[in-house]
């Protein structure tokens, strides 16, 4: 298999904060790779180094066997860059056409390619519009469209579903499923669940270290000690993950005060792992939690039965 990305002893720090610590990894062409890590773990930094936007402090970065500074990778590698926006002066079609022409296409070929990528991402009707009229989700689709121009062999997608509601996130996931055979995708996210159905391979980034697993599902075995149900001191203990979009004052204390709750731990920003006793009635705890949210006029993003895959992996790696 051809090596598409090769990192050898790559380190990068911002001031005293070491983001990448002597990272060495080799990714070969093939099935999509999920790059997973918590917010601030260094996923965007890693992508920026691969694209040549940032320079590593030390180590060697090669794309298709060529160092990034040699510009040989330009036609082969593409990226969805988080937070990069289109020029508000030009129409979507006009900008995409220029980007296609920079892949050494004629004007006619470029227009054909623009039509193709807009069709793939469901944006054909917006070709003559300017990008600022698009919603956040559509802008993500547009960013994917630009990354598909010129048929690159590897596409880096930095948080393609970040900030999207579940409906839009599903749309993006479907687009990624549609394009996964066109190029080797490397998709970063801190939400493993969304990536699991797209990516058979997964790379975890934590504390500046990167580890690649060829088998995503190996981290989610049913016998995992951190699954939804466990027995502690002869009592049935269940786990639930709660995700909120905002900080809710008093949330932790009020949940702790619920009679069934054993522990509540913040696992990420606005994400909590709750362990509780199973009640006599089905969904007894969930009902009391929903009632608490309703009484306080709070909103939640997700209740996840059990732990998130990401936390499971982190727990496993900590145990090791």
């Amino acid at each position: 298999m051809e090596s598409i990305i090769s990192l050898q002893n790559v380190s990068k720090s911002f001031g005293k904060h070491q983001v990448l610590d002597n990272v060495s990894v080799e990714i070969v062409a093939g099935e999509p790779v999920a790059l997973v890590g918590a917010n601030g773990a260094g996923k965007t930094t890693l992508f920026s180094i691969l694209c040549g936007f940032l320079k590593a402090d030390s180590g060697q970065v090669k794309i298709f066997g060529e160092v990034v500074s040699g510009y040989q990778h330009l036609a082969k590698l593409s990226a969805l860059i988080q937070d990069a926006e289109f020029d508000p002066d030009f129409s979507i079609s006009s900008q995409l056409k220029l980007y296609a022409q920079l892949h050494n296409m004629s004007a006619k070929q470029a227009q054909h390619d623009v039509d193709r990528v807009l069709e793939l991402t469901g944006l054909s009707g917006y070709a003559r519009q300017k990008s600022q009229i698009l919603s956040h989700g559509m802008k993500k689709r547009l960013a994917i469209a630009q990354s598909l121009l010129g048929s690159p062999q590897v596409i880096l997608l930095d948080e393609p579903t970040a900030g999207l509601d579940p409906d839009y996130a599903r749309q993006i996931s479907n687009i990624l499923l549609d394009i996964k055979d066109l190029a080797t995708l490397v998709i970063s996210s801190h939400q493993l669940e969304q990536l699991q159905r797209i990516c058979p391979r997964v790379a975890f980034l934590r504390d500046g270290k990167l580890s690649l697993s060829e088998h995503f599902n190996s981290i989610n075995k049913p016998e995992s000690p951190n699954s939804a149900r466990s027995i502690a001191n002869g009592i049935d203990v269940l786990t639930l993950t709660l995700r909120c979009s905002d900080q809710l004052p008093g949330l932790v204390d009020k949940i702790k005060a619920l009679p069934a709750v054993r522990t509540i731990v913040a696992t990420q920003r606005h994400e909590f792992k709750i362990q509780y006793h199973a009640g006599d009635q089905p969904y007894q705890f969930e009902h009391s939690l929903l009632k608490l949210f309703s009484e306080n006029h709070w909103h939640y993003d997700q209740f996840i039965n059990g732990e998130t895959l990401e936390n499971q992996w982190f727990s496993q790696s900590n145990d090791q």
Binding site: C51, F53, L74, A79, I81, E85, D87, Y99, L102
Partner: peptide
């Protein structure tokens, strides 16, 4: 402003 907006990155994926 292209640098601030990130637009310049779309170019730099394709040219020096």
């Amino acid at each position: 402003s292209d640098r601030q907006r990130g637009t310049v990155k779309f170019y730099l994926l394709r040219c020096r």
